[in-house]
Amino acid sequence: MEEYMIDLSEQSGQPIGSLYLMQIAKTSIDQMSFAFMDICLAYLNQQGPMAAGTVITMIDGYNDVADDIYVIPEIRKWMTALLQKYPYLLYFINRSLDSHINILSCIGNVVIGHVGEPNLTPKEYVRRGINPLTDVAPRRLVITLPDDIYARMETSLLDYGQRVKDPNGAYETIKMIKIVTNRRN
């Protein structure tokens, strides 16, 4: 299992530095290690507002598991600790492939989880020639966040937005969190 953050911008026809794939290894999760994330966040912090919304996350090492990541206890525990360390992390997360929803579902409460056919393991999707990104109906999740977690993220995002002189990026991230977690205030 390998961890990396690579620039996918050119392959996706976008300007360099506008789309990164961050692959997180199961070993980091099992060991509750944030060493790789520390390196990635240091780089993204150096980029400042240019890094807003540029990262897609993947977790490697669960190819034999059919469960959604939000029901895997060790991933929930790791993600919760990661967001305690970096409560502004969602500022960097791209919203096109649901990385933001995956992260929020791991730190929040999922009220309604599964609609439709049962999940397959990633290996089984490959064996059957199914692309889960295009051939499988998306899950319908109702995610709620405890008030203390939301407040910490909101405060941290506002502070981060001021620090990097991108309050609009911070506000947009907060707006997204409110929409995804059905928050009214």
Rank of each mutant, 00 (worst) to 15 (best):
E3W: 06
Y4S: 08
M5C: 11
M5E: 03
M5G: 11
I6R: 14
L8G: 08
E10D: 09
E10Q: 11
Q11D: 14
G13V: 14
G13N: 11
S18W: 01
Y20I: 00
Y20G: 03
L21F: 04
M22P: 00
M22W: 15
M22S: 04
Q23Y: 00
A25E: 01
K26H: 06
K26I: 08
K26C: 07
S28R: 00
S28P: 00
Q31E: 10
Q31K: 09
Q31P: 03
M32S: 02
A35I: 02
F36L: 08
I39N: 02
C40N: 05
L41W: 04
L41D: 00
A42E: 11
Y43T: 02
Y43A: 05
L44R: 07
N45K: 10
Q46H: 02
Q47N: 03
M50I: 09
A51K: 12
A52P: 00
G53K: 13
T54G: 02
T54S: 12
V55C: 12
V55W: 05
T57Y: 00
M58G: 07
D60Q: 12
G61C: 13
G61A: 11
G61F: 08
N63I: 13
D64H: 03
D64G: 08
V65Q: 14
D67T: 05
Y70E: 06
P73K: 00
P73T: 06
E74K: 09
E74D: 13
K77S: 08
M79N: 03
A81T: 06
L82D: 01
L82T: 01
K85C: 05
Y86H: 10
Y88K: 04
Y88E: 14
L89S: 07
L89Q: 13
L90F: 08
L90S: 05
F92M: 08
F92V: 03
I93A: 04
R95M: 05
R95A: 06
S96R: 07
D98K: 13
D98Q: 11
H100F: 10
I101D: 12
I101K: 12
N102T: 09
C106N: 12
C106I: 12
G108D: 05
G108T: 10
N109M: 15
I112A: 04
I112P: 00
G113A: 14
H114E: 13
V115R: 04
G116Q: 04
P118Y: 09
L120H: 10
P122T: 05
P122L: 01
P122I: 04
R127C: 09
R128H: 13
G129N: 07
N131C: 02
L133P: 07
L133R: 15
D135F: 10
D135V: 02
V136C: 14
P138L: 11
R139A: 14
R140T: 15
L141N: 04
L145I: 05
P146T: 09
D147E: 14
D147R: 03
R152P: 01
R152M: 05
M153W: 00
E154T: 00
E154M: 05
L158F: 11
L158G: 06
G161A: 01
Q162M: 07
R163F: 08
V164S: 09
K165N: 10
P167E: 12
N168Y: 08
G169H: 02
Y171L: 01
T173H: 13
M176W: 08
I177P: 12
I177A: 07
K178E: 13
I179A: 12
T181C: 12
T181H: 01
N182H: 15
R184L: 14
